[in-house]
């Protein structure tokens, strides 16, 4: 089998409607496809073209267009090429189907996306929290969540003046120059 993406991929993709294919280089192909057709595409890619390795699923938040983009990176050990399949789903309610029955690594990525973006994957084996088990706020990777603002609202700035440091400072030691002073240029 050829080491580059071959025309048979094009023939295969003609079986699905609404597919836009862009070749980035000899090993990279980008496919934009309607969300409904993605499971069919993955089934064809896996079953007939040897793309058995799901490298990653990425969620991208396009808040201005009120959409989530899901990107599936698929690698074929035979043709040594990487296909990235891109779909767009509505930001609300943010629901899509799981591809776990085709690719088992999807379970981790879908769980992660659910946790970080709030996208629910129907049929995924486990949608429970993994990383943010003690977090009750909104999914933090969404663009509307401002982490810095949240920190400023939730916590307050405190001056660092423990007793042991005060004692040392009184004796002329400790922090002799504050960072602000240190940054000022010498006259």
């Amino acid at each position: 089998m050829s080491k580059t993406v071959t025309p048979w991929l094009d023939n295969l993709l003609q079986e699905i409607e609404g597919v836009e294919i862009r070749r980035k280089d000899s090993r990279r192909v980008r496919i934009d496809i309607a969300a409904d057709s993605l499971p069919t595409l993955l089934e064809l890619l896996r079953g007939r073209a040897g793309y058995v390795h799901l490298s990653a699923i990425t969620c991208v938040d396009w808040i201005d267009e009120s959409q989530f983009e899901l990107v599936y990176q698929l690698w074929s050990y035979e043709s040594q090429s990487l296909v990235s399949a891109h779909i767009r789903i509505a930001r609300e309610p943010g629901v899509y189907v799981s591809v776990f029955d085709l690719y088992q690594p999807a379970a981790f990525f879908e769980r992660d996306i659910h946790e970080m973006f709030g996208v629910y994957f129907e049929g995924s084996p486990d949608m429970s929290k993994f990383i943010l088990t003690e977090w009750n706020g909104p999914p933090p990777m969404r663009k509307e969540f401002d982490a810095e603002a949240w920190v400023n609202e939730t916590f307050e700035w405190k001056e660092y003046q423990p007793d042991w440091l005060k004692e040392i400072t009184e004796q002329g030691g400790g922090i002799v120059k504050t960072p602000e002073e240190a940054r000022q240029k010498k006259p």
């Binding site: 990653a56 990425t58 969620c59 991208v60 990107v71 990176q73 981790f108």
Partner: peptide, 24 residues
């Protein structure tokens, strides 16, 4: 190890996704 990086033309990344091998 994979990095999926998206730029919207700005001075900061729009999205960076780190695919660490250990996540599997």
């Amino acid at each position: 190890l994979g990095y999926y990086v998206v730029s919207d033309g700005g001075d900061k990344p729009h999205r960076v996704h780190v695919r660490g091998p250990s996540s599997m």
